[in-house]
Design a binder for these strands. Structure first.
Length: 260
DNA sequence: ATGGTCGCGTAGCGA
């Protein structure tokens, strides 16, 4: 089964692009980020018509995450645990009845954090610490767990076209990469790295300054896996072709294929 | 070249 992460940058502005991609690739599970709308305005019918169950955790104008699944969704939680005062819609998690048993899937929109340093960067690092704590709890279940999302983290210099341009950015600062390593060191496997991702492969190209035609991208969309999920990973791919379609998102889908 | 481009919502912020 294929599990994808795709930051759509507004589900309403991207509905045509998303449904065309669903029709092309038929991912079994798709984790979406940056819906930029409330639950009541999510275009459910157009996506349900493609055979998907849907859960959303939306927010007016900003953020918002969803999980689309061709298999039944048994239970879910909205919002990252650990701070009841956090009103930003950046996390949704579900238990899905896959053909060979339950799979837990999360759709994650990690804070951007710019400008750094500053309060937005502090929020990013605090959010990453909360995510790490929650993952440590989830790993105790010893089940297939797939944490899919826009992490707003460039893990390595070779994951950006021009590392010097990102050196002080919240996506690439040493504290950001250290926090990302801490998350992985709880016991997760990055799907891209597991399949020998070499560098020079990107999932985001800025709308500005001709970043896409120049190949000036970064790799910030990731699938992080529990051991039980990593053992079943078969391959990964980046659906770059969608960036050439009309009115594309600035991100493209990243997809893992699993024997699950 | 201190810009450039999107989306939301209709000014200016977030990315």
């Amino acid at each position: 089964m294929d599990i994808a992460t795709f930051n759509v940058n507004s589900i309403k502005a991207r509905l045509h692009a998303v449904t065309q991609w669903l029709d092309d690739k038929s991912p079994d599970i798709a984790c979406l980020q940056e819906l930029k709308t409330v639950d009541g305005s999510f275009p459910r019918e157009e996506i349900e018509a493609r055979g998907y169950n849907i859960i959303t955790h939306g927010q007016k104008s900003y953020n918002g995450v969803a999980i689309l699944s061709k298999f039944p969704i048994e239970e879910h939680i909205s919002g990252l645990p650990g701070d009841e005062s956090d009103e930003q819609a950046r996390y949704i998690e579900a238990v899905i009845s896959a053909p060979q048993g339950a799979v837990r899937v999360a759709s994650i929109y990690l804070p951007n954090g710019n400008p750094a340093p500053g309060p937005k960067y502090d929020y990013k690092l605090a959010w990453m610490a909360r995510l790490k704590s929650h993952i440590q709890r989830l790993l105790g279940y010893e089940e297939p767990l797939i944490l899919a999302g826009d992490y707003n983290v460039i893990p390595r210099p070779e994951d950006c076209f021009d590392p010097a341009a990102w050196i002080d950015d919240a996506l690439f600062r040493p504290d950001t990469r250290a926090a990302f390593r801490e998350i992985i060191f709880t016991g997760l496997t990055s799907a891209f790295m597991q399949k020998d991702g070499r560098g020079g492969e990107y999932t985001f190209w800025d709308y500005q300054a001709g970043a896409w035609p120049r190949g000036n991208g970064i790799r910030i969309d990731h699938l992080l896996l529990s051991p039980q999920a990593a053992d079943k990973l078969q391959s990964v791919r980046i659906d770059k072709y969608v960036r050439d379609k009309d009115r594309p998102s600035d991100h493209v889908p990243f997809v893992g294929s699993f024997d699950l």
